[in-house]
Design a protein around this nucleic acid. Sequence first.
DNA 1: AAGTGGTCTAGACCACAAT
DNA 2: TTGTGGTCTAGACCACTTT
Lengths: 266, 266
Amino acid sequence: MDLMANTPQYQRIADELRAQIFDGTLDAGAQLPTEAELMERYSTARYSIRQALGVLVAEGLVVSKRPLGHFVHAAKPLVYRPQAEFKKKEPNLDIFAQLLADEGEGRVPSQQIEVSIVQAPPKIRERLGAGENELLAARRRTRFINGEPYNTNDSYVRYELVKDSPYVVAADYEPGTNQLLADLGKPLVRALDEIQVRMPRPDEVSRLSLSPGTPVAEHLVTTLTFHDEPVQVTLNVLNANRHKIVFERTRTWPPVHEESKGTESA
Amino acid sequence: MDLMANTPQYQRIADELRAQIFDGTLDAGAQLPTEAELMERYSTARYSIRQALGVLVAEGLVVSKRPLGHFVHAAKPLVYRPQAEFKKKEPNLDIFAQLLADEGEGRVPSQQIEVSIVQAPPKIRERLGAGENELLAARRRTRFINGEPYNTNDSYVRYELVKDSPYVVAADYEPGTNQLLADLGKPLVRALDEIQVRMPRPDEVSRLSLSPGTPVAEHLVTTLTFHDEPVQVTLNVLNANRHKIVFERTRTWPPVHEESKGTESA
DNA sequence: AAGTGGTCTAGACCACAAT
DNA sequence: TTGTGGTCTAGACCACTTT
C-alpha cells in the first residue's frame, strides 16, 4: 500500500531494526521480536519479515537460534596478531595460549593437532618452491576457545627438511617449530603475509562452526631465511568477523635507502 | 518428495551449481540458467530456486544483473599493499596511481578528495590522542578504478598541527602528505595497522557500490614519530572480496635483542 | 514488446529444543 | 507439549533493460 519511497518494505523493516541495534534499543545479546510479532507490528506477510531478518543475519548483526528466536549478535572480536607467532615471551607457553593470556578474560584454549605427509595444493607448493610431486610435512591444527572453533592453522614444510626431526612425530613439540627450524639451520628471518577475505566454503562453515553472513580471512604466511629461501608456509583460516588483525611496522617514512633491500631479484 | 538426506532442496541445488562453478562447467562471467529454467530442471517452486541462488550470491560467487540474469562472479582480486603507501618510487606519481601501475593491465585511476575540519569519531580520536572536542583536519578520499569505486581513504591529523600548511587547502598537495608532515617536523617512522573485517553498513554499500555478500575490510593505520607520538590516523575501507592484502615483515625469528630496537630513543 | 529478476501474499507442514 | 524458526507451494504484480 504505502510505497512511500521505492525502497522495499523489507529493507525499511531491516533499517529500522538495524538502527535499534546501533542505538542500543536492542543491545548485544537481546532477543528480537518473534516473526509473528513482527508480522503484526508491520502488518505484513511472513515472507517480508523473514527477508528483513535475513538482511540482518547476512550482515552478521543478528543470529538465529532455533527454536528460540533471533538475537543481536554478541560476540566481541578477538585480536589476531600475526606477529605474535614470532614473539614468544614465555618460552614454555604455547603461542596460542599466550595470545589468549594477553587478552585476559579467562578464555580456555585448546587445540587439535594432526601431523601428516601430503602432496600440497598448488597455492602452498608454489610459495614453498616445491616440486610438483614433492612430499610435504603438514601440521593441521584447529584451535578452540571455550570449546568453540577459533581458527585453523595448517603449516607446511618440505618433508625432506624435517624427516629425521620431531616435526613429523611430535604433534606438540615443546620448543616450537620455529625453534626447530632454526636448529635445522633455517632460521626464519623474513615473512610475507597475504590476507584474503571471502565468504567461506561449506566445509569451512562446518570446520569453524560459522553462522551465515560470516566472512573468513585466509592468512597465508611464507617465512624465509636470510637468503630468501622459503622454509615454511602456514595457512590460517579464521572467522573474519570476530577478529581484529594487528600489524606493526617500522622505518616507513621518509624512505631510508630502500633501494638496497629490494626483493625483485632473487 | 525425495528428502533423501535431510539437507534442504535449495541447499542441494546451490551445492550443484557451486560445484559447477568450481569445476569450470560454469566459468567466470558465464550466465547461469534463468530462474524459470531452473524451476523446470529441478521441478520445484520458484522460491526454492531463488533461495539457492541467494546462497550463491551471499557467498559472493554469483551476481545478479537485473534484468539480464545471474552470472558467475568474474572480478579478479587486486593487490592491496598497505606498505605501498610508504614506498614511493616515482616521486611525482600519486601513490594510488603507482599502485595500479605496478599491476599493469591498463586500469584508469581517479579520485575525489574533500578536505574538511571535523570533530572525529572516538575511534580516530583515541588513536590520535586528541581531546574530546579537539578539531581535526580530515582528508576524505574515494578512489575509483575505471570509474568503479575502489576504496575510501580518510586521513585525520590534529588541526593545530597543519592549520597553516597546504594540508587544509590543497586537496591534491603534490609532494604528498607524508612529506608534508615530515617537513613539519613529524616524520612518520612507525605504523600500527589494524584490520577488521565485517559486513558493510548500508552507507558503505552505496559509497563503494557493493553487491550483496561482499565483506569490507576496515584498515586503520596509526602513524607515529620516533618518539611514538601519533601523528596521522588513516581509515581505509575496501571491498574485501576484491583485494588481497599483502604485508612484508623482517627480523622475526629467532628474536634478536628485540628490546634494544623498540623505540630508538633519538 | 519481451523476458529477466525483485517484491509480496496467504497459506502449509516440519524439526527442534525448551519447558 | 508448545512455540520457535526452516522449508516449501502456487500464485500475483512490478521495474527494469535490452531488443
